[in-house]
Nucleic acid binder design. Sequence first.
DNA 1: CCGGCAACATGACGGCCGTCATGGATGTGT
DNA 2: ACACATCCATGACGGCCGTCATGTTGCCGG
Lengths: 228, 228
Amino acid sequence: MEQFTKSEKDFFHTAPFFRGISSDVVHALFDIGDAVHFPKGAHVSSLGDTVDPVFFVMSGLLRVSACAESGRRITFLLVKRAEPYNLLGPYLDCGRFLEAEAARPTRCLRIKGKVFMAFTADHPVFVPNILRWIGIGLDSANSRILDLMEKKVENRVLRVLSTLYEKFGTPLLFTSQEVSEIAGTTPESTLRTMGQLRDMGIITTQRGQIRIHDPAALKNIEFGSLKI
Amino acid sequence: MEQFTKSEKDFFHTAPFFRGISSDVVHALFDIGDAVHFPKGAHVSSLGDTVDPVFFVMSGLLRVSACAESGRRITFLLVKRAEPYNLLGPYLDCGRFLEAEAARPTRCLRIKGKVFMAFTADHPVFVPNILRWIGIGLDSANSRILDLMEKKVENRVLRVLSTLYEKFGTPLLFTSQEVSEIAGTTPESTLRTMGQLRDMGIITTQRGQIRIHDPAALKNIEFGSLKI
DNA sequence: CCGGCAACATGACGGCCGTCATGGATGTGT
DNA sequence: ACACATCCATGACGGCCGTCATGTTGCCGG
């Protein structure tokens, strides 16, 4: 039985993560995993889990987040189509504090940890891509730490909007709650900042939707790009 | 000419990063690099550099940090003996915003990026170790992001002291300035917190030196361990 | 021995932003 | 259509902590 269509597989081949990987190898990846579906809000992994399998998103969106003791939640990563989640899980046998849930109805390719490790061992051409992907993520995390130290909430929100725009285009289908969990602030502060941007004519907002009219204006302050 | 003594090489073999790696492979690593020395304060890499080589610290200490626009500096990583720096650099051909300097007189094994990549390709047994190391660093960075959101400076300082104690034992040879750059706060706030800890009899401080008498007391609030 | 510098220590002030509160707008289910 | 839930929007308050200011202590060079 065909779990994945040819066009799905072909799309993967063109995705950034698979840059330079021959289509044979990409297709082989589909043979060692199975398809799983998560309805919106479903938990892919929960706190403290030793998350074993590696996921590749076929469609939809995964949100990777963690909850602080105070109950506040922060979003670390949004995993979209043809992007991997939990690349490193198989190599870390300890429990982790991240949780992942489906931000929308999401279909994934799921590969068991041991199988994935065997696959990368058989296909060493994959290793540089994994390291590159992780490296970008690490730089992004460090960049965020810098942002949080700078403490200016407005800049953080600006930067988040800019990055989301680059990743998802416009309109952005996110609520202020979701934006604030990425920026590391509260919905109120996010709304205040977005109110100013609206007054300046840079964005317009509707319920659960942000339309960016002047992306360049969002970028004038920052110096780097987040990986969300 | 012998650049490295046998005892140096043997020490590496017992270090966490090289867990499970046969001593042959560890020794082979020394054959592909050369020794470099940095006096205290010397820059190993600077802002915007495309840092090519991978370093392993033989003795001394490297501080990996970045400077925010406001001029405040944050320390991401302290690299001690037998630990790697810039593992991912060879795989990321872009410039990065991290700077590294010798926190003390430091001797390193330096391996050119391309050579290191060839080495890992020849020795795939190395890959899981690299991924594990990076994974721990990534988790730590995310954990720090959570900490910064929680905003309680006291907890951050506590956590930093506890982690430094685990990594370096006692006494800690750091100034309040250095601690504050790890905790993401100011020297004043750090001193205030340490003043309380001193009043509680948990630590004693001297100029550039922190002596921890009750490590358990530092850990009672936190839930994870940083990787500094 | 002494002058200068760097780090320690502590108090006071002020602003950013998180929290709470209120009200309005928008979409949804029966 | 109407009630209800969710999100948007904005104002007021208060506390944490960064900043500045001042003084002390310890270390090093001449």
